[in-house]
């Protein structure tokens, strides 16, 4: 596909209780780009993702994905084009078994049964969970659930993946596996996250949102190195971008807290 693009043009949105979630947001994501949405809690990141496949409708402005207007007439193709993964996999995995969950999207696309089975197998293979089709969702670990959640949209063969906090709550090993997975998937990526190290590993560009506005966008290294900017918006510079000398001090401080450095007791 040559135009797996996202175009958000001057979108504003207020929740029914009157709280403004998005104020005149504009954003363009090119085909195959990997973009991170960062910002404090309540900045509007999740709200923006919900606009991408029409779960929320902009009160002003317009949203286009893959050249399609996101609106009532287009919801079917739009939802097939955009795979949206929610933060809590317990919301994403609502079927009794993994197979049914991964098959849900293709089923509602009206695909024939044989195709559905092929797609489920391929999607589970892609997230490294090929043996899990018959498992009950409630028995999975969080890391497994997060991977299956990704498979539930990969089976739609989406052109765009929109992920809300894909690494939240994962232990380091599961998180590392997820990052590897994300660097191998093909579609255009838009990730809303607090995990700034993940952004450095996966994304080409970062967009900083606060109070429903786009504050700045640019290369992850440039934006996240700006300590003052990050702190004003409730974030912090990730350690891997900390200058070497400063990092040395941090390490010395941490080691000074140990009674006998290098002496780890195993119980």
């Amino acid at each position: 596909m040559h135009h797996n693009t996202i175009d958000v043009e001057h979108v504003s949105y207020a929740y029914p209780d009157g709280q403004m979630a998005l104020r005149d947001v504009s954003l363009h994501v090119s085909s195959g780009e990997r973009v991170a949405l960062i910002g404090p809690n309540g900045a509007g990141k999740s709200t923006l993702l919900l606009h991408l496949n029409g779960l929320l409708k902009p009160q002003a402005g317009r949203v286009r994905v893959c050249g399609l207007d996101v609106g009532d007439g287009n919801l079917g193709p739009v939802r097939a084009a955009v795979g949206l993964v929610f933060q809590d996999p317990n919301d994403q995995l609502f079927c009794p078994t993994v197979f049914e969950d991964v098959a849900f999207g293709p089923l509602y696309q009206g695909l024939p049964e044989a195709d559905i089975r092929t797609r489920v197998a391929a999607a589970l293979e892609a997230v490294g969970m090929a043996d899990f089709a018959a498992r009950a969702s409630y028995r999975l670990s969080l890391g497994e659930k997060k991977r299956i959640a990704l498979a539930t949209v990969l089976s739609l063969r989406p052109h765009i993946l929109a992920l809300d906090e894909p690494s939240a709550g994962l232990d380091p090993r599961a998180r590392r596996g997820l990052i590897q997975l994300l660097t191998t998937v093909h579609p255009t990526l838009l990730i809303a996250t607090h995990d700034l190290e993940l952004v450095l590993d996966v994304c080409d560009r970062v967009v900083l949102l606060d109070e429903g506005r786009v504050i700045v966008e640019g290369c992850p290294g440039d934006v996240m190195c700006d300590v003052a900017l990050m702190e004003v918006h409730g974030l912090e510079r990730p350690h891997s971008l900390t200058p070497h000398a400063e990092l040395h001090h941090l390490r010395c401080d941490a080691l000074a807290k140990c009674v006998a450095p290098g002496n780890i007791t195993n119980e």
Partner: peptide, 10 residues
């Protein structure tokens, strides 16, 4: 939230 997740997949 489940309803959103279901709708998101058609």
């Amino acid at each position: 939230r489940i309803y959103s997740a279901m709708s998101a997949r058609g």
